[in-house]
Design a protein around this nucleic acid. Structure first.
Lengths: 169, 169
DNA sequence: CTTGGAAAGTCAACAAGGCTGACATAAACC
DNA sequence: GGTTTATGTCAGCCTTGTTGACTTTCCAAG
């Protein structure tokens, strides 16, 4: 690990860019993502919800009062797909859809108590795994982890991520 | 960026384990995985293959001559799901299925020239993205990236990943 | 005030890719 | 010979993605 010289110069130590290293990174993403979604999937199975419901709940919790169009662009699916999921969540009393005050065409989405409870259960599980991984890998590794993930995103995705990131805290 | 002291000590700075930090990690995984699969998805769309075909091709390339059962456990799907995909790939002449010599019940899977060509096209695209991300983040970040991903995996998944990892190079 | 267009919702149809269950075959193993 | 293992296949189901067509609501520009 004599890589301390990693300035923005360019080609000084490209060992870590071998196809072999890249392939390991690709496979690490594949297996890690499976683990990453495993806990919520387990909780949701049987209660007849899937990953799509989880994602909707996560981002509604994240940005309470968000509009359907907004959610659409964050999730990157069609409104028909999202609508099916939202209809179900609203019918089951997990999400409330409020007509906009300024623009009454818009629907502002918020979690109900019941919805927030499920969100907590799901994100507790996911955070527990993330916390364990962070602890095992250490602070420096965590920083690198996030740097690489951000660098992997397309500019448009990165912008959305950044916007969300700043909105927190 | 004053994190140079990240030794294997343990509990020295737990600031990075706030729910806020964990949530950022979770969302980074979500957006990055979307970007990660975007290039292969784009290539495959229209030629009527999907992510499932990509995964099969990747791991057959990775472990030429692997058996169906083996592939099943790496991919984590049912044999009916995998079979549908494999039948298609064999019919289209991308994969060859050879009866085992020692154990004639087994089928050994290998890519044909055509299959290898598609594999190259797909992995070139995926590697290019990974290379750009690695370059942007630097060697230290790459190490952290892989450490966190590995720590996130369940022991069983990690074992599979490790086995594959060693098999390379 | 009327009309164009944006935002939202709905219906219908379809496909990929997961899943379960049941069953068939061949080969290996005991 | 009976059991287990590896594979394949049929049928049917679900979730979650897609497109296309259409309606309703409502803001805003003409």
């Amino acid at each position: 690990m004599a890589e301390g010289t990693g300035g923005p110069g360019g080609g000084e130590s490209l060992l870590f860019l071998t196809d072999e290293q890249l392939r390991k990174g690709i496979e690490a993403m594949f297996f890690a993502y499976r683990a990453f979604t495993a806990d919520p999937d387990r909780i949701l199975e049987g209660m007849d919800y899937g990953r799509a419901h989880h994602r909707a709940i996560h981002f509604i919790h994240r940005s309470p009062g968000t509009t359907v169009t907004n959610l659409l662009s964050v999730l990157g699916v069609t409104k028909q797909s999202l609508n099916r999921v939202l209809r179900r969540l609203i019918k089951d009393g997990l999400v409330e859809s409020r007509v906009g005050r300024q623009d009454k065409r818009e629907r502002h989405l918020v979690l109900t108590g019941k919805g927030a409870a499920l969100e907590r259960e799901l994100s507790d599980a996911q955070r527990a795994r993330m916390r364990a991984a962070y602890r095992a890998a250490g602070p420096a590794a965590v920083q690198g982890f996030r740097q690489v993930l951000e660098a992997m995103m397309d500019p448009q995705l990165r912008r959305q991520y950044q916007t969300l990131k700043e909105a927190g805290s």
